[in-house]
């Protein structure tokens, strides 16, 4: 799945570091970090809060540049990365003056797709994933879970092939979270998306991922890479299987060592 044929990989992060300078102080957010995401692969990053995961995301999304090291999307080490990823930040960041449907089509507006066509694509996506009745609602009237779904569809419509999801379900209650996890798996199935996913939730990482990178406290480096060999399609009940429970314990132990007191 992740062999050295690196040009086939969706994402290669090689020796990336990022140092922020605040006045005279130097803050190292990322220690040299290596990471890959294969075509159609779901890779999660877990690690203690503030370890630099979001910094890594900004770099991959092309919003930030690494201090040293390099990043390649689909084997392209040189080109601009912005525009090649579907980036979803922690908050849904829906535009309050746009309806759900208009929010979903934002990325197409940026790409200068004609209005009519953009609207039609957004409409079809909402229909396909059972959100058509909310198409004309403003974000203020939607529940947290619903806003997150709309934000996900916005991300997918902009770029379905490679998604960067930064703790998309972090702020949701447990039940909504499970519903959305299943919804996401369904969504990815139909788009064959490659995903890089940040989460704090070990069970979430196990349920969704093919591979999990466990990161250290800041500056982030890779502590361990774990393959999740649960069969697909995944179901919530699989978390109760012996293999999953074992993995969960292993990951929690590893993370607890990194957690600052």
């Amino acid at each position: 799945m992740h062999d050295p044929q690196k040009d086939d990989l969706k994402l290669v992060v090689k020796g990336v570091t990022r140092t922020f300078s605040a006045g005279r102080r130097q803050l190292e957010a990322l220690a040299p970090l290596d990471l890959t995401v294969g075509q159609g692969e779901f890779v999660s990053l877990i690690g203690p809060s503030g370890c630099g995961k979001s910094t890594l995301f900004n770099i991959v999304a092309g919003v930030d540049t690494p201090t040293t090291g390099a990043v390649a999307i689909e084997g392209d080490w040189q080109g601009e990365r912005a525009g090649k990823v579907g980036y979803m930040p922690q908050q849904p960041l829906l535009l309050p003056w746009r309806t759900a449907e208009e929010n979903v089509m934002l990325g197409l507006d940026v790409r200068r797709v004609p209005q009519k066509e953009a609207r039609q694509q957004a409409h079809e996506l909402l229909k396909r994933f059972g959100l058509l009745e909310f198409a004309d609602s403003y974000p203020a009237t939607l529940s947290g879970g619903m806003r997150q779904r709309i934000a996900l569809l916005r991300t997918i419509l902009f770029n379905a092939s490679f998604l960067l999801l930064d703790e998309p379900f972090g702020a949701l209650d447990a039940l909504t979270r499970i519903t959305l996890q299943m919804w996401l798996l369904d969504l990815l199935e139909s788009f064959h998306s490659s995903v890089l996913f940040i989460t704090h939730d070990v069970r979430e990482a196990i349920l969704l991922s093919d591979r999990i990178y466990v990161l250290s406290a800041r500056p982030a480096s890779v502590l361990r890479i774990v393959d999740v060999d649960l069969p697909r399609p995944r179901r919530q009940q699989m978390l109760a299987e012996a293999r999953a429970v074992e993995l969960e314990q292993e990951l929690i132990l590893l993370l607890m060592k990194e957690q600052p007191l």
């Binding site: 900004n58 601009e80 912005a82």
Partner: peptide, 8 residues
Amino acid sequence: KLLHSMRA
């Protein structure tokens, strides 16, 4: 940042 990532 979101708009930047979309290369707006």
